[in-house]
């Protein structure tokens, strides 16, 4: 079994149909258990009070936001190198999910920041980098939406994804440089290793894995939709021609 077999859309459809119920059930179960456990059965942090509960949404969505971009980069490159149609459709399907995850991470971060840092928005390097990432997602989706020919769109968005990834990494370090240059010692760090103890760790892992499965569910579903949409467009075109 290799990914090349699923370059055949029919085979991908068959595979995803059998897998989808399991993946979606796992996603629902893990997220429910993780969030309920986190929300109802964990103690408050002695410094952050009950706002620590936001971590069960914030950290998984932020993790997914970055990983989804990496996934899009990999699948786009698979398309560029080997013309794997399902792969590039998966990248297209993943982009809105990634944008939503980025938005969730930003929103929960801002809401958490208000009582903790005294401000909704701080031009902290990490926050800024996420905002830029969100803009990249928007650009990527806009380019997909603007081009009619599916193969041209796939090629151009793949190039954009590659160049965008390089610039995203450069931006990340440039932003680090910029903020430290502006005002010394931004005292606000989101370092998880420091302040997460075991009590918070277990539901966090559950919800993290749950978000991973949720992404898998959605990306499979959306890729199926994209394949159907492309078949639909092809059939309609044939009708018009005949």
């Amino acid at each position: 079994m290799s990914i090349w077999e699923y370059a055949n859309p029919a085979r991908f459809m068959r595979f995803s149909r059998t897998v989808l119920p399991w993946v979606s059930a796992a996603a629902a179960l893990l997220i429910l258990v993780g969030l309920i456990w986190g929300f109802f059965f964990t103690p408050d942090d002695f410094r952050q009070g009950s706002t620590v509960k936001i971590i069960y949404l914030h950290v998984p969505s932020a993790t997914m936001a970055i990983n989804i971009w990496v996934m899009m980069l990999v699948t786009s490159m698979i398309w560029v190198v080997r013309r794997h149609h399902v792969s590039v459709l998966a990248a297209k399907a993943a982009a809105p999910i990634g944008a939503t995850m980025t938005l969730i991470a930003l929103a929960t971060g801002a809401i958490w920041g208000q009582p903790m840092w005294g401000t909704y928005w701080e031009w902290d390097p990490r926050l800024t980098a996420f905002l830029i990432l969100f803009l990249f997602y928007l650009g990527y989706m806009a380019l997909w939406a603007a081009i009619e020919d599916p193969d041209v769109a796939a090629d151009l968005t793949s190039i954009l994804c590659l160049v965008g990834s390089v610039f995203a990494v450069i931006s990340r370090y440039a932003i680090n440089f910029w903020n430290q240059g502006l005002h010394q010692g931004a005292s606000l760090s989101l370092d998880q290793e420091e302040n997460v103890s075991d009590v918070f760790w277990q539901p966090l892992v559950l919800s993290l894995v749950g978000f991973g499965f949720l992404f898998l569910t959605l990306v499979l579903l959306r890729t199926r939709t994209e394949i159907r949409a492309r078949r639909l467009a092809a059939l309609k075109q044939r009708e018009r021609v005949s």
Partner: peptide, 14 residues
């Protein structure tokens, strides 16, 4: 506690 609004709104938004 006193952060009820923040926590609940974070969950609601997400």
């Amino acid at each position: 506690g006193k952060y009820a609004v923040e926590v609940l709104s974070a969950y609601a938004v997400s």
